[in-house]
Design a protein around this nucleic acid. Structure first.
Length: 303
DNA sequence: GATATTTGACCGTT
DNA sequence: AACGGTCAAATATC
């Protein structure tokens, strides 16, 4: 039940970030309104009023969505757990069968390596697509937290290898956060970043909220904002300690970046990999695409 | 010298 | 047997 509660918090937190963006949009509009107040024509004033009305609608919709999320998550979670025979009991801390002492496991020796890698798929997971502005700008690895690369693999059917990272303090502080980074086949500027688990180390305590969870890197997120972010993350619905609060928007630099850059459009996709094992494991499926322009036109259609 | 990265090998699952 | 994830020795960097 704890994980479910965290999921709700994650979803609500995500919605709150959207709400925050709306507030920033309001502030931005307000400042623009003041600047244009002297020379603004009647048409501009009408458009401004319409925008304000739309923003108001957006806020109401978000509020409704937050309330729906609170109940919906619980329902979906219950259903998923019911259909998942080997889901750990509520009293557990996320250690089904051989999952070891904690979420990411703390196995030693190679004998458990593969078993652990399979178990990892049951961990809280967040996959993010990060677009960089240039090939040289890659290394979407600096999110203010320290990661250590521990492997790289050529993936079948993938043009680029996948890199594996884990928290530098894995052993010293038993922090089992990890992430996988892979350049997408179609777009060399686009990276798939998959986060597993969450940071429990000291650096996470001092980091911004985003840092403690499944945080994409600020630099890449900023680049993503500049290039038109495409974000993907999935929410495991029935896993204990499931947390998926990350979004590049949650990056300390990103909201300001978005607001400052006057981003004309951004798409947000909230999806799950339905063709992945996660899909078969009761992962909660979302497909949420937000086109800012369309959202302003028909906010209600998104909820 | 300490820390991080690279890379081939290993392991369990499918 | 193929695959993906991890380990750990070797190597590179600070």
């Amino acid at each position: 039940m704890e994980g479910m509660s965290e999921e709700k918090c994650a979803l609500v937190a995500e919605l709150m970030r959207v709400l925050e963006m709306v507030r920033q949009l309001e502030a931005h509009m307000s400042s623009q309104h003041q600047q244009q107040h002297g020379g603004g024509g009647a048409a501009a004033g009408g458009g401004d009023q319409r925008c304000r009305a739309l923003v108001c609608t957006m806020r109401e919709s978000i509020d409704r969505a937050m309330r729906m999320a609170m109940s919906c998550c619980a329902d979906v979670g219950r259903a998923a757990v019911a259909g998942q025979p080997d889901s750990p009991p509520s009293g557990g801390d996320g250690s089904p069968r051989s999952a070891g002492s904690d979420q990411a496991g703390d196995f030693r020796g190679r004998g458990n390596a593969a078993g652990q890698c399979k178990k990892r798929k049951t961990l809280p997971m967040c996959s993010t697509q990060v677009r960089v502005s240039a090939v040289q700008d890659v290394t979407p690895l600096d999110d203010g937290l320290s990661w250590r690369k521990y492997g790289q693999k050529d993936i079948l059917g993938a043009k680029y290898p996948r890199s594996y990272f884990r928290c530098t303090h894995r052993h010293t502080q038993s922090c089992h956060a990890s992430k996988q980074v892979q350049r997408t086949d179609g777009d060399p500027l686009l990276f798939d970043v998959v986060y597993h688990g969450h940071h429990t180390c000291a650096q996470a305590q001092g980091a911004p909220a985003v840092g403690n969870q499944l945080a994409p890197d600020a630099a890449a997120a900023a680049a993503a904002a500049a290039a038109g972010p495409v974000l993907q993350f999935s929410l495991p619905s029935n896993k204990p300690a499931a947390v998926a609060t990350a979004s590049p928007f949650a990056s300390p630099a990103t909201p300001e970046c978005l607001a400052a850059r006057d981003v004309p459009r951004h798409d947000v996709e909230l999806v799950s990999a339905t063709n992945s094992p996660m899909g078969a494991m009761g992962e909660m499926d979302f497909m949420f695409t937000l086109d800012a322009a369309d959202f302003l036109e028909n906010p209600a259609s998104y909820f």
